[in-house]
Amino acid sequence: MKLVLATGNKGKVREIKALCEDHEVVPYSELIDEFEIIEDGDTFKENALIKARAVFKALNDEDVIVIADDSGISVDVLDGAPGIYSARYAGADANDKDNLYKLIEAIKEKGFDSSPAHYTAAIAIVTKDAEYSVHGWMYGTALTKAIGDGGFGYDPMFIPLGFDKTLGELDDEIKKKLSHRSKALALAKKIIKTL
């Protein structure tokens, strides 16, 4: 069964492909031209569903399962920011590094060297018959410096609970077990098996 990802983010595509090895996983951009999807929901779940619905409709193929992920980091000393705005925290045209360093500066501006934080991943699954959503979380500490060059996004500034290294330093196999996205995908896979 073909799983179509409603994302063009290479980091997310790589991570989801690795976690769903028993399925054919294709980013939607390999099937149709990429198009802008306005994510105007108030939660990760709403935005994931908006993306999955839009791609399912655009594909015009009832035999696919579309998976969309909306995820981000929430920092306690910033009252949960950047949250659903994680991907565009430093502006619409910002890249991962811009977002990372803006978040580091925002924590410093509050007078802290670190803060409790967590990642949230909401995964939406849309088929011709139904819609589903699941969540996964990873808790830890956000630092005011970037350490390590592995992973993507905010990984170099985040130390997961129970570890002393950032996600930018940790081995991919360890990250796979801890990841908010892998926890959400484990639940999503249970749903996909029933479809």
Rank of each mutant, 00 (worst) to 15 (best):
D40F: 06
S74T: 05
T43D: 03
M1L: 14
S86T: 14
N9L: 11
N99A: 14
I16T: 06
K165N: 04
T127L: 06
K193I: 12
L59C: 02
L187H: 06
N47L: 06
V25F: 07
D79M: 01
A124D: 01
Y101S: 14
I50T: 02
A90M: 13
D113A: 15
K102I: 07
E24M: 08
L170D: 04
R88F: 13
Y28E: 05
S74L: 08
K176E: 14
N99L: 15
D42V: 03
D172E: 15
T7R: 01
K128T: 04
A6I: 08
I174L: 10
V66D: 01
K189Y: 03
N99R: 15
N95T: 11
E46C: 09
K175D: 04
T7G: 07
N47D: 03
G72F: 00
S29Y: 11
K189R: 08
K189S: 00
M157G: 07
L19R: 10
A146V: 13
D76F: 08
D42G: 11
D113T: 15
T7W: 06
D171H: 13
L167E: 06
G148L: 05
Y85I: 09
L19G: 04
K128F: 10
G83T: 12
G136F: 03
A18N: 14
E39G: 09
D33F: 00
K176N: 15
V126P: 12
P156C: 09
K193E: 15
I84L: 10
G136T: 02
Y132S: 08
K108A: 00
T194S: 15
S29R: 00
G140I: 02
K190P: 13
F158I: 02
L59K: 03
T194P: 00
D171Y: 11
L78A: 06
N47V: 02
I84W: 13
S182K: 10
G111S: 10
G8P: 00
P156I: 07
D70C: 04
L195V: 14
K110A: 05
Y139Q: 10
A52V: 05
L5T: 01
I107M: 12
S86K: 14
V77R: 06
E39K: 02
F35M: 14
G11R: 04
E131V: 05
E173Y: 15
D61S: 04
I16D: 01
P116F: 06
F56W: 11
K165M: 06
K177I: 13
K17F: 02
K2L: 12
S114Q: 09
V66W: 01
T194V: 13
E30N: 14
A130G: 14
A117L: 08
G150K: 12
D42Y: 10
F163A: 07
L187K: 15
F152W: 09
H180Y: 05
A58L: 04
K45C: 09
A142K: 10
D96R: 04
L161S: 05
D172W: 11
K102H: 09
E62H: 13
P116V: 00
I16C: 05
L167S: 03
E105W: 03
N9H: 09
I123L: 12
T43G: 02
A58Y: 05
I50P: 01
D69P: 06
I107C: 13
A184N: 07
Y89E: 14
D155H: 07
E36F: 07
E173M: 15
Y119H: 01
A124G: 03
A117K: 10
